[in-house]
């Protein structure tokens, strides 16, 4: 179904990928940790290596929980699938696109 309107209803999406240039938005959910109400949202370069993303972005946020141990981060998933590929690869190379949802356990 489309929007009923008196004119051609055609508008761009507010947060489409091109708006963010070489960056993109990525969401990260810490499974099973109810101290955080929801997943977090990050703006990151598409070419950032995954390992760098984890240390430079994720660790600071996850440390909101004083029990967070960076060494315990495991079982990464991209949406519902196991994340496969090396951590030295970039987000783009791992198939992590704009507004992708990652999750981990710790």
């Amino acid at each position: 179904m489309t929007v009923k309107a008196l004119y051609d209803y055609e508008f761009p999406s507010a947060d489409r990928a091109e708006v963010f240039g070489d960056d993109q938005l990525v969401y990260v959910h810490w499974r099973g940790n109810p101290l955080f109400c929801s997943a977090a949202c990050f703006r990151v370069p598409k070419n950032m290596p995954f390992a760098e993303f984890v240390t430079s972005m994720l660790h600071g946020w996850a440390a909101s929980d004083p029990d967070f141990d960076p060494a315990s981060v495991t079982d990464w998933r991209l949406f519902d699938e196991q994340l496969s590929g090396g951590q030295d690869k970039s987000l783009a190379d791992l198939g992590i696109g704009h507004k992708a949802l990652l999750s981990f356990a710790a």
Binding site: A40, A63, P66
Partner: peptide, 12 residues
């Protein structure tokens, strides 16, 4: 212990 948990980031 003197802390206070805030979400150090932005939510989805």
């Amino acid at each position: 212990d003197g802390g206070r948990v805030f979400f150090q980031g932005l939510p989805q």
